[in-house]
């Protein structure tokens, strides 16, 4: 974290979250509508994948069930990040542009803790539910035996995915110290990352694959561990131990995002009004 948070940081964060949930639930119908809407807007993507498999049968060597595993894992990880990282997601618009970040800087707690606790968006459960359904279907369809280590690797992959996407939101927030108008470009990595990770990395062009492995380690929290879970040979030629260790890259990426955040704060000048 940017500065030492002292005792009680975690319980303070817990209070932020529970308060945010209680506030949302005051408008119960609104919350239900938002969750259902999000379920539908993200669910049409799953329908699209199904339609393409219905038409083409296979995606190269990949079956619908295998792609559903990739799709499910990333669609479970992403909404959790989205729910938790709202403060960073809207940072440019709601804090930098308005000058509200000055108030955050004045408070005796770290900026990261305050933004993390800004809002907990429970309506993201709409996409989460959609992802869980697809993941369930994948597990049911796949001809693999669900041993404890397979489940453990899957849970580890999803958790690393949450951390990875959280890092992207922190990077986006750090970027808003320089520009608030061009932040839409970060959607290529957040929403575009979800879109990309829904299909096997192996079908993409080499340059694109390398970018999403070594620069932005999206493949490390989806494709590579998925290959290990499926117990198949990687057409890209990675070793089994690499596939299992790959999700760790998500945590490295998170550390890098915190460095970018600290660097950004040093460049912050208030809008002054």
């Amino acid at each position: 974290m940017a500065t030492a948070d002292g005792p009680g940081a975690l319980s303070l964060y817990g209070r932020f979250v529970s308060q945010s949930i209680r506030a949302t639930l005051q408008y119960r119908l609104s919350f239900v509508l938002m969750a259902v809407g999000y379920f539908i807007t993200s669910g049409v993507e799953a329908l699209g994948v199904w339609a393409l498999f219905d038409r083409f049968g296979m995606l190269g060597q990949w079956s619908l069930a295998e792609v559903a595993l990739l799709y499910g894992m990333v669609n479970v990880a992403f909404p959790i990040s989205e729910a938790l990282a709202r403060g960073f997601d809207v940072f440019g618009q709601e804090f930098v542009k308005t000058g509200n970040f000055d108030r955050v800087l004045l408070r005796p707690r770290s900026t990261v803790l305050q933004l993390a606790g800004y809002e907990f968006q429970i309506h993201r459960v709409g996409r989460l539910l959609q992802g869980l359904i697809v993941l369930g279907i994948a597990m049911w369809l796949l001809p693999v035996e669900w041993t404890w280590w397979r489940i453990a690797l899957m849970v580890f992959t999803i958790l690393s995915g949450v951390v990875f996407f959280y890092a992207l939101f922190i990077f986006q927030a750090a970027m808003s110290f320089w520009t608030v108008e061009s932040l839409e470009i970060m959607n290529t990595l957040t929403y575009g990352g979800v879109e990309t990770a829904q299909y096997p990395l192996a079908i993409y062009e080499p340059g694109f694959r390398r970018f999403f492995t070594f620069v932005v380690p999206l493949g490390c929290i989806s494709y590579f561990p998925a290959v290990a879970i499926l117990g198949i040979e990687d057409p890209l030629g990675s070793e089994r131990w690499m596939q299992v260790a790959a999700p760790l890259a998500g945590y490295l990426f998170f550390a890098a995002s915190l460095l970018a955040w600290r660097f950004g704060i040093r460049h912050y000048t208030s809008t002054g009004s």
């Binding site: 393409l52 049968g57 995606l59 190269g60 990309t196 079908i203 062009e205």
Partner: peptide, 13 residues
Amino acid sequence: IKVMVFVAFYASA
């Protein structure tokens, strides 16, 4: 992304 996905699907039609 979409083009690459379609390239792969069309290759396996």
